[in-house]
Simulated scan of single mutants.
Amino acid sequence: MGNLVQAELRKTTTTGLWWGLLIPTVLLALGGGLLSGLIGQWFVNLISTSEAEELSQVLGVTPDQWRVSMFGMARSINLATLFPLVFGALAISGEISRRTITTTFLTAPSRMHAMLAKMLVYAFWGAVYGLAIMASTALGVVLVSESSQLPDAGGWAMLTLVCVLSSILMTMFGIGIGALIPNVAGVVVLLIMYFLVIENALQLGLRISGTPETLVGFLPNGSVDGLTGTVAVDLFLSTAGVVPEEGVEWLRIIAGAGGAQAWWLSGLIFLGWVGVAFGGGWALVARKNIT
């Protein structure tokens, strides 16, 4: 098994795909962090004007304690994890389309061993991407924000945990869908369209139709976004004073976690989607004829 893992790792490091996707990932996360910090600082300056003093007194908190940048950070992380999703999708679809999967299956003790080795290696890369995303987003926010706008050590640790977890799960989901749709261009376009357009339109339609908001949190994008979004909202509420329940739901929507469950439950829901995609891809690859 160790040799299979080494072989899979060598496949990824001897091509430029991992760093070719990592560069835009870091740039997007850094840009998102900078924008989040700037918007958060602008909002704090706006709410600090004399016209907003009464609102601050009612809430029992000074404006500089409103960590508005947390919402932008969650959005930035969620958007950046599209790159490890694509990276995972190319893990099998690229090999099948180029027929390099044949050598892998013929030299491995079984296809199950080959798939398990691939899963372990790409989980590692998902963690690498997650750490890079978190570091870049955090750097962007820190560069333009005051210390009062930043989370404490526990908050940073929690954001890092859910960011890495989200990145790993997105990579695994990509592998499963890539196995189900062994067409490089097709699977990449489909995944990006789904996470950026299709499900967002579906969520909007559900909200307009009056469907319970919690249903959104059970969709693939809604559940994975809930991982970081709910943590961001919790960090904001920890210093925001008294916020009514209706306001909390709007904060979740702003953070991209409208209708989401608690972060750990959102993670379990998306893990279920990963299991369906990966299990289906695994079953398809196990029966696929190789040439």
Rank of each mutant, 00 (worst) to 15 (best):
125 W>Y: 11
107 T>E: 15
278 F>I: 12
89 A>C: 10
260 A>P: 08
148 S>E: 07
192 I>Q: 10
85 L>D: 02
176 G>T: 04
109 P>D: 09
29 A>D: 02
138 A>D: 04
87 F>R: 11
91 A>R: 12
83 F>I: 06
205 G>E: 02
75 R>S: 13
240 A>G: 10
187 V>E: 02
73 M>W: 00
123 A>M: 15
44 V>G: 00
160 T>N: 03
28 L>Q: 03
4 L>T: 02
264 W>S: 02
58 V>L: 12
275 G>W: 01
54 E>Q: 11
272 G>V: 04
238 S>V: 09
229 G>Q: 03
233 V>N: 05
24 P>H: 08
246 E>S: 15
4 L>A: 12
212 P>G: 05
11 K>R: 13
76 S>V: 06
100 T>G: 13
202 L>T: 07
281 G>E: 11
64 D>T: 04
131 L>Y: 03
201 A>Y: 08
76 S>I: 07
81 T>N: 10
202 L>K: 04
42 W>P: 07
218 F>S: 04
263 W>C: 00
187 V>A: 08
58 V>D: 07
34 L>Y: 03
55 L>K: 05
86 V>G: 00
80 A>Q: 04
195 F>C: 07
276 V>Y: 09
116 L>G: 15
31 G>L: 02
109 P>I: 11
14 T>E: 11
194 Y>N: 11
289 N>Q: 15
105 F>S: 14
249 E>H: 13
229 G>S: 07
93 S>D: 08
34 L>C: 02
237 L>A: 08
129 Y>E: 00
181 I>R: 07
6 Q>H: 11
239 T>S: 05
259 G>W: 00
21 L>P: 01
254 I>F: 06
190 L>V: 12
286 A>I: 14
240 A>M: 02
51 E>F: 12
213 E>D: 15
68 V>Y: 09
37 G>N: 02
96 I>F: 09
172 M>C: 15
179 A>N: 08
182 P>M: 08
256 G>V: 03
194 Y>W: 15
126 G>M: 02
68 V>D: 04
39 I>A: 07
74 A>L: 08
104 T>K: 09
42 W>R: 10
11 K>T: 14
62 T>L: 10
14 T>R: 14
83 F>E: 02
187 V>K: 09
204 L>R: 07
203 Q>Y: 05
289 N>G: 15
42 W>G: 11
259 G>R: 05
269 I>T: 03
252 R>P: 06
247 G>T: 01
198 I>P: 12
19 W>I: 13
27 L>E: 05
50 S>D: 09
180 L>H: 05
181 I>M: 11
173 F>T: 05
273 W>H: 04
171 T>F: 08
38 L>D: 01
69 S>H: 04
138 A>H: 04
262 A>K: 05
143 L>F: 09
59 L>S: 13
40 G>L: 06
268 L>N: 09
268 L>R: 07
26 V>N: 05
41 Q>R: 07
114 A>G: 12
187 V>G: 10
147 S>Q: 11
174 G>R: 04
242 V>K: 06
64 D>Y: 00
25 T>N: 12
264 W>L: 01
19 W>A: 09
183 N>S: 14
213 E>C: 13
210 G>I: 01
224 V>G: 00
184 V>Q: 13
137 T>C: 09
203 Q>R: 12
65 Q>Y: 05
167 S>D: 01
186 G>I: 10
202 L>H: 08
35 L>N: 03
144 V>T: 00
